[in-house]
Simulated assay, not measured.
Amino acid sequence: MALKDDINRLLEGLKQERDELRLKMHLAKLEVQQEWEKAEKQWESFKSKAEEALEGGKEVAEELAESAKVIGEELKNAYLRIRERLS
């Protein structure tokens, strides 16, 4: 009878662990998706500012380049967070 009790406890424990992991994976997927959507907005902003900086005059280019650099660093960090969550 002790063997059946041990198996039953193992079964219940694994079932609970499985359910918790499934929920965490689902929530992580949502978080990664939200992070990606935010990164996509940053990408569009970065791309736009970078293109303007490359096309503009020296004064305009310096201001836009600095702004693009800040956005680019934020985007780089967002991509790193996404990569870490997917690993």
Rank of each mutant, 00 (worst) to 15 (best):
Met1Asn: 07
Met1Pro: 05
Met1Tyr: 07
Ala2Thr: 05
Leu3Asn: 05
Lys4Phe: 05
Asp6Met: 13
Ile7Asp: 02
Asn8Leu: 11
Leu10His: 07
Leu11Ala: 12
Leu11Asp: 12
Leu11Met: 13
Glu12Tyr: 07
Glu12Val: 10
Glu12Arg: 12
Gly13Trp: 04
Gly13Cys: 05
Leu14Ile: 07
Leu14Ser: 09
Leu14Met: 12
Lys15Trp: 02
Lys15Arg: 07
Glu17Ala: 15
Glu17Val: 04
Arg18Met: 10
Arg18Ala: 10
Asp19Ala: 14
Leu21Cys: 09
Leu21Lys: 15
Leu21Asn: 15
Arg22Trp: 05
Arg22Leu: 06
Lys24Trp: 09
Lys24Phe: 07
Met25Phe: 02
His26Ala: 13
Leu27Ala: 12
Leu30Gly: 05
Leu30Ser: 11
Leu30Gln: 13
Glu31Asn: 09
Val32Lys: 01
Val32Pro: 00
Val32His: 01
Gln33Ser: 13
Gln33Met: 10
Gln33Trp: 06
Lys38Gln: 09
Ala39Ile: 03
Ala39Cys: 06
Ala39Lys: 04
Ala39Pro: 00
Glu40Trp: 01
Glu40His: 04
Lys41Phe: 11
Lys41Cys: 11
Lys41Val: 13
Gln42Ile: 01
Gln42Gly: 05
Gln42Trp: 03
Trp43Phe: 01
Glu44Tyr: 12
Glu44Phe: 12
Glu44Ser: 13
Glu44Thr: 14
Glu44Met: 12
Ser45Trp: 01
Ser45Arg: 08
Phe46Glu: 01
Phe46Ile: 03
Lys47Leu: 06
Lys47Met: 04
Ser48Arg: 04
Lys49Val: 03
Ala50His: 12
Glu52Cys: 03
Ala53Asn: 00
Leu54Glu: 10
Glu55Ala: 13
Glu55Ile: 08
Gly56Cys: 11
Gly56Lys: 11
Gly56Trp: 04
Gly57Thr: 15
Lys58Leu: 13
Val60Arg: 14
Glu62Ile: 14
Glu62Arg: 14
Glu62Thr: 14
Leu64Thr: 03
Leu64Gln: 04
Leu64His: 02
Leu64Lys: 08
Ala65Glu: 01
Ala65Leu: 02
Glu66Phe: 04
Ser67Met: 02
Ser67Arg: 03
Ala68Trp: 00
Lys69Cys: 07
Lys69Val: 06
Ile71Glu: 03
Gly72Ala: 06
Gly72Arg: 02
Glu73Tyr: 10
Glu73Ile: 08
Glu74His: 12
Leu75Tyr: 00
Leu75Ala: 01
Leu75Asp: 00
Lys76Met: 07
Tyr79Pro: 03
Ile82Ala: 00
Arg83Thr: 07
Arg83Asp: 06
Arg83Phe: 05
Leu86Lys: 10
Ser87Pro: 09
